[in-house]
Design a binder for these strands. Structure first.
Lengths: 334, 334
DNA sequence: CTGTTAGCGCATTCAA
DNA sequence: TTGAATGCGCTAACAG
């Protein structure tokens, strides 16, 4: 008779299954292992039956302690709103679950938060950390999760960690070329947080494209990616001379600009300037915000990330970030 | 000389700290414990210094194995898009992290997925599971995570698990009363998935409110909460007699209805019918979708959930779900 | 193929 | 206050 069950917590352990099936713990471990391991057919059968009878559920934590694999993948963001791209995130979550791992979602909206995590040491070990937050560099994240595998999507990578970033220059060139072809000679740029590495490169790409197409950069307005900041920025167009085109580094800001201008110039049917956004949010497919935008293939993006998680060995230290090409998506405002 | 470091993995363990500080492992454990425990000042000092020198980070998994607390909280959703309410989710994530726990995000878009989790037994032990997905009942979730504490937000609760649900009837009555006060006599209802428990109650609330206000229910159209399904549903209004008002059980569907009607009746300035949404999404504060809606206090909602996580003992088995009152948010379309 | 043994990293008895 | 010993639940290494 097994008397190990209920010794502490009510939940049956592997030892209980072994006792009931009258085999050793090792056999139970092997029979229940996801990977095929040598167990005779009849013992396997007895084990499965016993596990079923007891309602046994393995404890992944205990397993991790010996295997050194937690099947946990951290996703680190500034705020949930970084995932404005819910489509991308939904797909990512699905793929991670499909490879038998689970997502630990962390938001670290400031450098303070990162340091707090480090100090308190509460962050779980994970098999991999996927970083969108730009408040954390690769080295810090490696310490934070004691994981050697961190994939950086925030534009800050180092030699030891792979990175996947949209190659934004391509799409930006296409968008600016589109504007030029339509007779645009002057443009304003509405930007996000200047401190972010990605944003710096993005702005540089716009400047280069304007230069190449002979478009004058009439103004640079500072926003924070949000709808509200887009609206605020658009106030500049109400009184001053409006440029031929306005480029925003996020669709949300472009939506704000669009709404502000609809209010300023209610009867201005053919819009007073061409408007270009960034992100290719799904809402730009709604009638109310038909904003020409720049986006990338989400499936491809996720595929690269997951590949690093599944085959970390394919990463050669020091290699450059994997670029996912962006492209221009023309819509009514462009 | 300590030779325990680097024996397997390079990461220092508690034993390494003990060796360097020249104290026992127990002392290190106590000195580094979050809760105050008896350690002499000088030893504590030596331990902290040694831990710092080694870059020691405790392993939460190993700790969990003995404490039976993982500091993990599962959030279970159908799809990420359930979190249309990103504001709510962002706040929830913040609060959970504030109490020293971390969020494990699971999507189980179908009953199959739930069963797969159960079968594969890969779900981590968690301190609590917060369930939005309506593909999982409380008992199943308890088995899934071997956790006694699951909080149901999907409308399916049982005697053993607490539940927090918006009290939708209040807001619905207010919205319908608003319509009645404005002379609405007939209404159409655009609904989501009929199978969901929440949706069933919601529809019943609308029916009751219509009845109470003497509004005739002209049509019930089936959607799936999405923008696209709202657009499709609106086709019915193009040819048939339009009702005085259209009530949608999600803002996304209301947005679809609005855009479809703008297209059908482009010059119909004073809209042909009043439109009411549900969820009070932040986008309804944008100019383009000024949809009167029904929402609830997100801070209060999250507060209730977190309270159950922190003080599970406050839940009395068998008690009814905690209701968070909703209210009507009038906007231009109402 | 099987069972025994020895840890994984930590918290917690219990004596001292 | 301290340290030695024990065990959490499981897998891996080894010998049969």
């Amino acid at each position: 008779m097994s008397d190990t069950t209920d010794h502490k917590t009510g939940r049956p352990t592997l030892a209980d299954v072994a006792a009931l099936a009258e085999v050793s713990r090792a056999v139970v471990s092997r029979a229940l292992s996801p990977s095929p391991r040598p167990v005779s057919a009849d013992k396997r059968e007895r084990v499965l039956r016993a596990a079923e009878a007891l309602g046994y559920r393995p404890n992944p934590l205990a397993r991790s302690l010996t295997t050194k694999r937690t099947n946990l993948v951290a996703v680190v963001v500034n705020h949930i709103h970084d995932l404005s791209d819910l489509d991308l995130f939904d797909r990512l979550l699905g793929e991670i679950q499909a490879i038998g791992k689970q997502v630990l979602l962390l938001k670290v909206g400031s450098v303070d938060r990162v340091e707090a995590f480090l100090r308190e040491g509460v962050a779980h070990h994970v098999d991999a950390a996927l970083v969108w937050s730009d408040f954390a560099d690769a080295a810090t994240v490696r310490r934070m999760f004691r994981s050697d595998l961190v994939v950086m999507m925030n534009g800050c990578h180092d030699a030891l960690s792979p990175a996947v970033v949209p190659d934004e220059a391509v799409g930006i060139r296409e968008a600016v070329a589109d504007a030029a072809a339509k007779g645009v000679h002057s443009a304003a740029l509405v930007t996000g947080r200047a401190s972010s590495a990605i944003e710096g490169e993005r702005v540089a790409s716009y400047r280069a494209a304007f230069e190449a197409e002979g478009i004058a950069l009439a103004a640079v307005l500072q926003g924070d990616y949000s709808y509200a900041s887009g609206r605020a920025a658009a106030a500049a167009f109400q009184h001053e001379a409006t440029p031929d085109a306005v480029f925003c580094t996020s669709d949300a800001m472009a939506m704000g600009v669009l709404d502000a201008c609809r209010r300023f110039f209610p009867d201005d049917r053919p819009s007073r300037f061409r408007l270009y956004g960034f992100d290719n949010l799904s809402i730009t497919d709604h009638d109310a915000y038909p904003i020409s935008s720049i986006g990338f293939d989400k499936a491809g993006f996720v595929e690269h990330i997951v590949r690093f998680v599944v085959h970390p060995e394919t990463f050669v230290p020091g290699s450059p970030p994997v670029g996912v090409p962006t492209r221009f998506f023309p819509r009514a405002t462009g």
